[in-house]
Amino acid sequence: MRRYKRTLVAVALATTVVAGTAGWASGNAQEAVTGPPPGSSAWRAEGLPDPAATTPEQVAYFFAGLSQDRRQDLARRHPLVVGNLDGAPVELRYEANSRAAKAEGFDRLAKPGRQILAFDPRGRAQVAEVYGDLGKAEHVAVVVPGSDIDARTFDRTNDVYGTPAGMAKSLYDSTKSHRTAVIAWAGYTTPVGVGVDAATGDLAEAGAERLARLTDGLDATGAPDPAVFCHSYGSVVCGLAAPRLDAADVVALGSPGMRVASVDDMRTDARVWAAKDPSDWISKVPNVEFAGLGHGTDPTEPAFGARRVPADDAEGHTGYFAPGTESLRTFAAITVGEL
């Protein structure tokens, strides 16, 4: 009976998982953005490849057979489709997304020099940005954020290293001498604050599909297999995506659990790493999974089987990518293959 009561208490606490970066706040139910990008109906009406049914490899093959003028014409007339097609030429996607972001009122994303790899204005809006030259990179990393992240908070100026843009830029600055490209990927609907969304895997399941397609797209365009850095609720996304993820490394940091009991259960050929600093409040989240609530085993537990990333000098839940930390130095070494 006592064990049963402890389980109920743990489950109750698990519903208060804050899987992202905004701290303790009330949660709001979110509906995952899924399916092909906006504008797909008009695209299909021209007899063009169905974005919902065409693989990134097929997308790459399709664009390889087009003239430059034809590519530019499609990007101009169908920016939201071209900009979100994994497997399409990355420079063309940058152009298309700059046009789409400006048209949708996201002027800061359309500023010259920004390399927006994906932009979807639906819901709270999603975005991915590249730091470095993805076409020539010898090493690639992807940063997957946790809760409370969307196109408007993607590159906020407060709590910088709790944002995908801040984490990615810090990692890029630490690795750019090695011809590295880093993708800040806020390409899924994240939970908002505390609530059922943060304590369950529904949004993560939808995100996992999109993340797997991203890595397939990188492969289709000739990029090296990435190191994928998964922060907080983003590690739930990565845990569910792992069997389909074309990645060299998967790194969970500040994780509430990955919805698997061990590295073996992830069914991945990637090396799996985990980091948690002593001051991270995520340690207060019970590592249980019961009736769909909670995310299971702490990836930093020895029994999980992940390689441990030192993080004692990181501060709080969003300090892992702060310059000068041992965790950032280790992340950089993982990215460039020095570990």
Rank of each mutant, 00 (worst) to 15 (best):
M1T: 13
Y4N: 05
K5L: 13
K5H: 13
R6S: 15
T7E: 11
A12Q: 03
L13Y: 03
V18S: 05
V18W: 04
A19Y: 08
G20L: 07
T21Q: 12
A29T: 15
Q30W: 00
E31T: 14
E31W: 05
T34E: 00
G35M: 06
G39S: 07
G39Y: 00
S40N: 02
S41T: 02
G47V: 14
P49K: 04
Q58H: 10
Q58E: 15
Q58R: 15
A60H: 13
Y61E: 14
Y61A: 13
F62Y: 15
L66E: 00
L66Y: 13
S67N: 06
D69C: 08
D69G: 15
L74M: 09
R77W: 04
V82P: 05
G83W: 11
G83L: 09
N84E: 11
A88W: 11
A88L: 06
V90E: 13
E91S: 13
L92T: 06
R93P: 03
Y94G: 07
E95V: 11
A100I: 04
A100C: 08
A100D: 07
A100R: 09
A101T: 13
K102Y: 10
K102R: 15
G105D: 12
D107T: 04
D107G: 12
L109P: 03
A110M: 00
G113K: 02
R114W: 01
Q115F: 09
P121T: 06
R122M: 14
R122F: 08
R124D: 15
V127T: 10
A128R: 04
V130S: 01
Y131N: 12
G135A: 02
A137Y: 02
E138F: 00
V140G: 14
V140Y: 00
D148P: 09
I149G: 05
R152E: 01
T153M: 10
D155L: 08
N158D: 11
T163L: 04
L171Y: 06
Y172F: 13
T175R: 05
R179K: 15
T180E: 12
A184Y: 08
A186K: 03
T189N: 04
T189Q: 12
V192D: 13
G193M: 12
G193T: 07
V194R: 11
G195A: 09
A204M: 00
D219Q: 04
A220G: 11
V228R: 03
S232C: 12
Y233G: 03
V236A: 01
A241G: 09
L245P: 02
A248Y: 05
P256K: 07
A261S: 14
A261H: 07
V263W: 06
D265L: 08
R267L: 04
T268A: 07
R271Q: 09
V272W: 13
A275W: 15
P286Q: 14
N287T: 05
E289W: 09
E289K: 02
E289Y: 11
L293D: 09
L293I: 15
D298Q: 09
A303V: 12
A303D: 02
A306E: 02
R308E: 01
P310R: 14
A311E: 06
A311D: 03
G316I: 09
H317M: 07
H317E: 13
Y320V: 08
Y320T: 00
A322L: 02
P323N: 03
P323Y: 10
G324F: 07
G324H: 01
E326C: 03
L328D: 05
L328A: 01
T330P: 07
F331L: 07
F331Y: 03
A333D: 15
I334C: 08
G337H: 15
